[in-house]
Amino acid sequence: MKTMLKNSTRGALTLLAFSVVFTALMAGTYTFTRNIVQKNELDAKTALLAQVLPKGSYDNNLLQDVKAASSADCKRLNNEAGCQIYLAKKDGKTVAAVIETVAPDGYSGKIKLLVGVNRDGVVQGVRVIAHKETPGLGDYIDAAKSAWSEQFGGKSLTNPADNGWKVKKDGGQFDSTAGATISPRAVVKAVHNVLGFVNEQRASLFGA
């Protein structure tokens, strides 16, 4: 009995010692890398946001001029509550907004998008930031795979008119690849939806 107790105590203490040492090592690495990791994440996000706005069209830090959208607005954008809108400013005047939106009807689930719209309601850029579309088939909506998403630049609610906001196959103005129209259809619809949203919210987004 005594030796058993002694053995278990010894075992427990050994485990404790190892846990302490290796936890300390992990904590040390964490402290050492924390700032770099944070900076990397911010840089990655800034770079992503910069992709949907023309270079030099704004002079603020987008990550600092964030407007938390109301839950009704997020719902309007098919996004989860707590979605954000980044405001691009030049000389203190809001010139464009970067809106996080979701195309809920992709071929395999949600397609997450960033859409840059200027104060005249003209699309500055569209980027797919997360999707599960079929590799090699529907994934050409991703800027990393093809230039497809660039055709949104310069489009607005009046250019084309409502009935033009469809893929060509459905009688609209947007290109799509034969055999893979579900993904682009979803994106076109989502971008159109964002433009409608910006139009309604113009006052609250851009002031006057």
Binding site: L25, T29, T33, I36, N40, E41, A44
Partner: peptide, 13 residues
């Protein structure tokens, strides 16, 4: 965990 943190810092992409 340590390798994970270090990769996150130095080869983030």
């Amino acid at each position: 965990t340590m390798v994970d943190l270090l990769m996150n810092s130095y080869v983030h992409d």
